[in-house]
Design a protein around this nucleic acid. Structure first.
Length: 443
DNA sequence: GCTTATGATTCAGG
DNA sequence: CCTGAATCATAAGC
């Protein structure tokens, strides 16, 4: 009733249809004395207001009858507009403050994420077609397409649910809005409801529904996150490469020890090679980026603890050198014999040669210790040439390292960084010949 | 269960 | 964008 009395008081100062309702007319008595014409109107208004105020105290029938009476009252339109105005002034100013709603940052984040995940945003294919397309797309890049398409399919599912739900909400919102609007319009015949207020009500409804939408978005986001952790982040779940794959990578690494930075093509080649080898088993394919990872890890770990990798180095050196060795052994026999500073004899194979990895390979091959059957490279002659070349250069170096010697690759400088093509035998094509059968894999 | 190996990720620097 | 370095997280070996 507080509200009502306030309205009544306010009414005192409001102009009413051209007539000024004089102030000080707080709660006029229901049965005032009859005076001037103005007084009569005052009386009239007071009477009406009183009736309105007391309408709730009456029985339903009585009230209904009174309502009808009031509706037909000649002052009704004027009073209506005044009441609207008052309502506007009291109600609107209160709500005005909270109506300002800047775009919710959280909602924006959700929107962005959904957009980024392809849940919202433009339809691309839709349904299983999207999954198929995704699978096809990733198929080219030898990615783990199986998991990927699976992920895509699930994502599409989420997307569909999201969209149908969203549509449902929107529809419900619209229905409810029109319903409320009709109701309010209907009621505005008897209650002081201005169009502005209806508008505001619509706004409130929309906000309510958008908060529901946000919940939908939130749960969709959650679903996507879970999906992600189940599928994509499963990448983090480490699965060791197959033995063959590691072997291939190691062979390349140790045969390019002077500059173990495979080019993009080389990486692709290695990835392909590993995948082929692996795919004979059950393992997943190996991607170029995995090759990059592998080399990154390998370089750093090798550098950190060369000693630990020495044995491995020797092993792969031996392995890799097989071809060259067999091909060239005979031809190079001479050269080898007059190479005085080759301390690296002995089957253990510690190497002091301060030369490139390729060189290391070559020399190892010449030792011819632990080789078992090998294929002969095609370009024997060039290999021989290269070997000659390399060996002749080797003569110029003296090994400053002790006999127990950790193998120290020339490419590794004092800082521990790999120098760029320091040795003539490193990156450039001719030298790659002897050390690696693999050089041709990288082309 | 602890340790080591290893693939992946993150971050800074060039 | 690539790399090195540090780090994470899991697999594997004991």
């Amino acid at each position: 009733m507080d509200e009502q009395s306030r309205i009544m008081q306010t009414l005192g100062g409001v102009s009413l249809a051209g007539h000024s309702v004089q102030g000080g007319m707080s709660l006029p008595p229901p049965h005032g004395h009859e005076g001037t014409d103005g007084d009569g109107r005052k009386q009239d208004i007071g009477d009406i207001l009183h009736q309105i105020m007391t309408i709730t105290d009456q029985s339903l029938d009585e009230a209904q009858a009174k309502k009808h009476g009031l509706n037909c009252h000649r002052m009704k339109p004027a009073l209506f507009s005044v009441l609207c105005e008052i309502k506007e002034k009291t109600g609107l100013s209160i709500r005005g403050a909270q109506e300002e709603d800047p775009p919710d940052p959280q909602l924006m984040r959700l929107d962005n994420m959904l957009l980024a995940e392809g849940v919202s945003g433009p339809e691309k294919g839709g349904g299983s077609a999207a999954a198929a397309a995704a699978a096809a797309a990733s198929g080219g890049t030898a990615d783990n397409s199986i998991e990927h398409s699976d992920y895509r399919a699930k994502l599409t599912q989420i997307r569909q649910i999201y969209h149908t739900e969203l549509e449902k909400y929107e529809q419900a919102c619209n229905e409810f809005t029109t319903h409320v609007m009709n109701l309010l319009r209907e009621q505005s015949r008897t209650r002081p409801i201005s169009p502005k207020e209806i508008e505001r009500m619509v706004g409130i409804i929309h906000r309510k529904f958008s908060s529901i939408q946000m919940q939908l978005k939130q749960s969709t986001c959650e679903a996507v996150m879970i999906l992600r952790s189940r599928f994509l982040d499963a990448r983090r779940k480490r699965r060791n490469f197959s033995k063959q794959a590691t072997e291939i990578l190691n062979e390349y690494f140790y045969s390019h020890l002077s500059n173990p930075y495979p080019s993009e093509e080389a990486k692709e080649e290695l990835a392909k090679k590993c995948s082929i080898t692996v795919s004979q088993g059950l393992g997943s394919t190996i991607t170029v980026s995995q090759v990059s990872n592998w080399f990154g890890n390998k370089r750093i770990r090798y550098k950190k603890n060369i000693g630990k990798f020495q044995e491995e180095a020797n092993l792969y050196a031996a392995k890799t050198a097989v071809t060259a060795a067999h091909a060239a052994a005979a031809a190079v026999q001479n050269s080898q014999t007059n190479s005085p500073t080759t301390p690296n004899s002995g089957s253990s194979g510690s190497f002091n040669l301060p030369n490139s990895g390729d060189m290391f390979m070559s020399m190892q091959s010449l030792n011819g210790d632990s080789y078992q059957g090998a294929q002969v490279g095609a370009n024997v002659q060039s290999q021989v040439d290269t070997l000659r070349h390399v060996i002749s250069q080797t003569a110029g170096y003296s090994d400053g390292l002790g006999g127990n010697s950790l193998y120290s690759p020339h490419g590794l400088n004092a800082n521990g960084g790999w120098q760029d093509a320091t040795t003539p035998s490193s990156v450039t094509s001719p030298t790659e010949g002897p050390g690696s059968v693999h050089s041709d894999t990288s082309n």
